[in-house]
């Protein structure tokens, strides 16, 4: 290549770079015009999943669209692994997380949460023909935010049922913390990086049971593969499992967070959240519904 050629080439690259950078700046904008990048997993149906055509769908993509429209903000959802999502938020690659993140005390130290837009219980799921399928307290609500003799007794029975069993959970999920604190070394806990891998091992019998969000499990149990599975034992809520699902922001992003917080309050009040829950989970997953159930259980 001649010197001229090289120089021309460099000029082209420089021009291209300017155009691309300029374009990006234009698209992303500044201040209130900036496109908000929303991180989600895209692998957690029906909360959020990726359609065969690559489009994100589910409760959260729908809900984020509604919230952004309400706030007159442009938002773009991107899919990434949960492992790296908090890091991506901290380094500014995304502006908020909408991935059914449970509000827990540990997470509140590194994330700024809105009020919860959903509150769901955890359920134990096992194979239909497994001994655990007949676990005590079937369907009973265990509310770890309301300690008392009833909870203590149920916890004892739960520990007894799960003693020596292998329980699979998604790593760093809220249920992972809960199991560690509640069962301690009584059961062995196996960690999975994706729900799909955990579900496979549950179906082929490598793990005895899993503890998972009811909103995730209900639709799975309705599928052909899921027919071999069943919910067992009590439903659990509160305590280390957190205070419901909320959007997560960088702790310093208070203005943005409070704008979304207001929009969430409005969409809960006008029934939008309830409607979305019925659409995606076949149940009302709104915090008010959970509060009513928890009150009834007492």
């Amino acid at each position: 290549m001649t010197a001229f050629g090289i120089r021309a080439g460099l000029a082209c690259v420089a021009a291209l770079a300017t155009a691309v950078l300029g374009g990006c700046r234009d698209e992303e904008g500044k201040g209130a015009d900036r496109v908000l990048v929303v991180g989600t997993e895209g692998l957690y149906p029906p909360w959020n999943y990726t359609r065969p055509d690559g489009q994100l769908a589910g409760f959260e993509p729908d809900y984020v669209r509604i919230l952004c429209a309400r706030l007159h903000r442009r938002c773009r959802m991107v899919a990434m692994d949960w492992d790296g999502m908090v890091g991506a938020l901290q380094t500014g690659k995304i502006d908020l997380i909408a991935d059914s993140v449970q509000v827990t005390p540990e997470r509140s130290q590194v994330l700024g949460f809105t009020r919860p837009y959903a509150m769901t219980t955890g359920v134990f799921v096992t194979l239909r023909d497994h001994r655990l399928a007949g676990m005590a307290d079937k369907g009973a609500m265990m509310d770890f935010d309301r300690p008392g003799p009833a909870l203590t007794a149920m916890t004892g029975r739960l520990k007894g049922s799960l003693a020596g069993k292998v329980i699979g959970v998604e790593i760093s999920g809220a249920f992972d913390n809960f199991l560690n604190q509640t069962l301690g070394s009584g059961a062995s806990i196996r960690y999975y990086h994706t729900m799909g891998e955990r579900d496979l091992d549950l179906l082929n019998g490598r793990i005895d049971a899993t503890l998972e969000d009811e909103a995730y499990m209900r639709p799975l149990l309705a599928t052909r593969d899921g027919a071999a599975l069943t919910m067992a034992g009590p439903r659990v809520i509160g305590g280390a499992m957190g205070g419901g699902e909320a959007l997560a922001f960088r702790p310093g992003d208070t203005a943005l967070r409070s704008a979304f917080d207001g929009a969430i309050a409005a969409t809960i009040a006008d029934g939008t959240v309830r409607r979305l829950g019925l659409k995606w989970f076949r149940m009302d997953a709104s915090p008010a519904q959970a509060a009513a159930e928890r009150k009834g259980a007492r």
Partner: peptide, 15 residues
């Protein structure tokens, strides 16, 4: 799901 050196490191990071 083997909790070897890398598995434990990933577990600590996840928490």
């Amino acid at each position: 799901t083997v909790l070897d050196v890398t598995g434990v490191a990933q577990q600590v990071i996840a928490h």
